[in-house]
């Protein structure tokens, strides 16, 4: 569904991505793992066309070349991005947020049929949002805001959904709910690129895995290749497990 090759870029002169390749199969979940600062968020930004500087590389979605286009074109082409922490427009109501999520739905004005239908679908998926449609999004709890953000991203019916740490700052019970929702979306046929720090949770729903370090992909492949648990030590707990224990001060 999504093929990324050789993305190199960053913020002005500061490079954070160095020739990154990645792909997401149709109807699959690819999980990107890596420590903070490894470049995971920048990779999603680069795919969405939001990274300030991209000097090289191509992005292709469902056979359509999106390289060099600006963010709004990519969203129109069927990409969706749920950013970390910048989840919703806090000052706007829940319903306005959803309508903004459906900005690219064709049809004029707020009352266009297609937009109303997508809104109805979002409310069916998240009944909790319907109850709170008039209140400002900023006053929702963290978990509710995350659901709203996903609801927003789903409004235009995207082909590929990118999620940046959807579980960040959420209580464990809600984490399961959010990631369960992600797994359910795959069952509906959506392709998903997931950046997640909760390694075990993420692996539980992954089809493919890519591991990033210092702006590069250091390992990628089907989940089975990472199943022996070495991954947690390698990526999450640090360089190697041995060092962790023999390290002296």
């Amino acid at each position: 569904m999504l093929t990324v090759t050789g993305i190199t870029g960053g913020y002005g002169d500061l490079r954070v991505l160095w020739g990154v390749d990645a792909r997401v199969g149709a109807g699959k979940i690819t999980v990107v793992l890596g420590r903070n600062g490894a470049g995971k968020t920048s990779l999603l930004s680069a795919i969405a066309g939001l990274l300030p500087t991209v000097s090289e590389g191509t992005v292709e979605l469902a056979g359509q070349d999106l390289s060099g286009t600006r963010a709004h074109r990519r969203i129109r082409a069927g990409l969706a991005l749920v950013q970390e922490n910048k989840r919703v427009f806090r000052g706007r109501s829940v319903e306005e947020n959803l309508l903004l999520g459906g900005y690219t739905i064709p049809g004029r004005g707020l009352r266009a049929t297609a937009r109303r239908e997508a809104l109805e679908q979002a409310y069916e998926r998240f009944p909790m949002l319907r109850e709170r449609r008039r209140i400002p999004a900023g006053s929702l709890s963290g978990g509710q805001q995350q659901m709203l953000a996903i609801g927003q991203a789903l409004m235009p019916g995207p082909k590929l959904l990118m999620l940046d740490e959807p579980s960040a700052g959420l209580a464990p019970s809600i984490v399961n709910e959010v990631l369960g929702m992600v797994a359910a979306l795959r069952e509906e046929g959506l392709s998903i690129l997931l950046v997640e720090q909760r390694v075990e949770h993420a692996l539980a729903i992954a089809d493919d895995v890519a591991v990033m370090e210092n702006g590069r992909i250091i390992a990628a492949g089907p989940k089975a290749e990472f199943d022996d648990g070495a991954l947690i030590r390698e990526v999450y707990l640090g360089r190697t497990g041995e060092q962790m224990n023999t390290g002296n001060r």
Binding site: S167, A230, I232, Y236
Partner: peptide, 18 residues
């Protein structure tokens, strides 16, 4: 809490790490 692992998985992780 930190890795999102269940207790059991956490235990394997720590033992493996050790």
């Amino acid at each position: 809490e930190y890795t999102g692992a269940t207790d059991e998985q956490a235990e394997t992780a720590t033992t493996k790490g050790a």
